[in-house]
Design a protein around this nucleic acid. Sequence first.
DNA 1: AGCTCAACCTGGCTGC
DNA 2: TGCAGCCAGGTTGAGC
Length: 277
Amino acid sequence: MPELPEVEVTKQGIAPIIEGKSISDVVIYDGRLRWPVPINLKNILCDQKVRLLRRRGKYILFEFDHGTMIIHLGMTGVLRIQEKTEPARKHDRVEFHFGKKVLRLHDPRKFGSIHWHPLSETPVDEIPMLKRLGVEPFGPAFEGALGAELLFKKSRSRTVSVKEFLLAGQCVVGVGNIYCSESLFTAGINPKTPAGKVSFKRYELLAESIRVTLEKAIEAGGSSLKDFVNSQGEPGHFMVQTKVYDRTGEPCHQCQSLIKQIKQGQRSTFYCSNCQK
DNA sequence: AGCTCAACCTGGCTGC
DNA sequence: TGCAGCCAGGTTGAGC
C-alpha cells in the first residue's frame, strides 16, 4: 500500500500526537516481520521521549536522545493511533503506548520492518539501508532543473526500462508502482523505453510529473488502493483518479485508446500506447 | 556495477 | 461450496 504519499500522510498524522511524548510500554504480538523486530525493544524505548518524527524515502524515523527507530510499512503496513482501550486486531504486530493512546503497527503480509539504530559515530542517514536511497523528490537536490539533470546523468548507459529504473529508487525515492505508471503517463513516456535512451527534454517532463503526481496524492490524503487508511483510520481518495494504474482495458482519458498492462521486472505496468511513445 | 529473478507472507479474487 | 492458482502497494540478496 504505502508509497511516499501514504508514508508522508501517515507521518503527518501521528507526529502531532507522539512528538515530545514518552513511551510507557511496548508490546510485540508478532515480531517476525521482514526482519525480526528487536526483542529488547521494550527495554530500549520505555520511558524514552520521541524527540522528532521524520521521513526518509518510505521509511519513518523516530528520533530519541539515545538513537533512532526506523519503521518501514512494506506492502500492507499501517500505523494508527488508537485508544488503549480499543482491543488489538488480527495482524496488529507491535504497539507503542503513550499514556492513554497507543500507536499500532498493523501489517497482514509482514513485509514491514522495525530497526533500532543506537546513537553512535555513524549518523542514522549514513547506515547502508538509508544511504543507498536516491534523493527526496521534494528536496533541494531534485528541485527545478536538478531533478532532470540527475535522472539524465544517472541513466546514461543504463539498459533497463525507464519504468524499472525509476522504480528502483536509486535516483529519486518514493515513486512506487502506482505513481511510477502515473508519472510516466503524465510525461508521455513509454515505460518500455530503455532509461539510457530517454532524452533530457523528456526527463524534464518526467521530473515535473513526479513532483506533481506525488504532491497531488499527498493533498488527497494518500492512495485508497485496497486498504489504505491514514493514522486516524480514514481512507485516502487518490485511486478514484488514477489515469492508468489498475485501468487495464478501460479507455484512456486523453485519447480513448484502451489502457494496456504489461509485466516489467515482476511488477505490473499500466500505460497508454498511443499517448506514451 | 548492472541485470534478472527468487524470496519474504497473507488475503482476496477468479475460474473450474 | 471448495479449492487451486494467481495477484497485490516493497525491498533484499544471490548468481551471473
